[in-house]
Amino acid sequence: MTPLPLRSRVAHILQREVGRLSAIFWVLPITFILHVLMGYHIKDAAQVRTRYRALVKESGRPLLICPNHLTMMDSAVIAWALGGSWWYLFHYSRIPWNIPEYNNFASQWPTRIGAWLTKCIPVIRGGRREDISRVIKRVQHLLSRGETALIFPEAGRSRSGRVEADTVAHAVGRILTSVPGCQPLCVYLRGDRQRTWSTVPARGDSFYIDFEVVEPVSDHSGMRRSRDFSQQILDRLVGMEEEYFAGR
């Protein structure tokens, strides 16, 4: 893993610390929007959070959250579902760094500021290789410092409404193979009223969430190893989705 230039490391420290100092002004309002204004509800939230917090406490390893992807609010809902707002105020490093699409979340300066404060590193999907690589290196750096990040292993929101195992995003495997000890956490999230993909979940929706640590393995090296890791993460999400539908 190539070390980040000093300037980028300083920029990260600044972003993280300003976000931390202002966390009470954005963590709680985001929760208010999700829970009160949008009326979202997490099923078995207390149990989910107890499990997640225990996992974080026991493992002590950098965590790469790898969820399925159906709406543009998935990362916010997942973060809220796993940690709960108050816990994050005291465990700021566990708020996942998020990699949103630049054109959706950071193309205007107000949203860019919001993304910067809320631990986002925007990326232009399908953009120049060097730019994407720079973002991946930033995530590698953060994870190597023991932080948590969230990346969708599908190449976009699933158009079919089901995990699309043939649209694997390579970045997940690349990060996992390059950050020693990094632990992938597969997360399956679905609102009861979510039939296919959408911009936001339906107002008042109730979310099922489950998660599972996986340990990908590969006999290969180089890009093929990264690809194997990404594919295994995605295959596990397919399995978790099958379990979800089987249990309905």
Binding site: R129, E130, I132, R174, S178, S221, M223, R224, S226
Partner: peptide, 8 residues
């Protein structure tokens, strides 16, 4: 064999 960083 190509490494991820080569592919960038």
């Amino acid at each position: 064999e190509v490494e991820d960083e080569d592919a960038d």
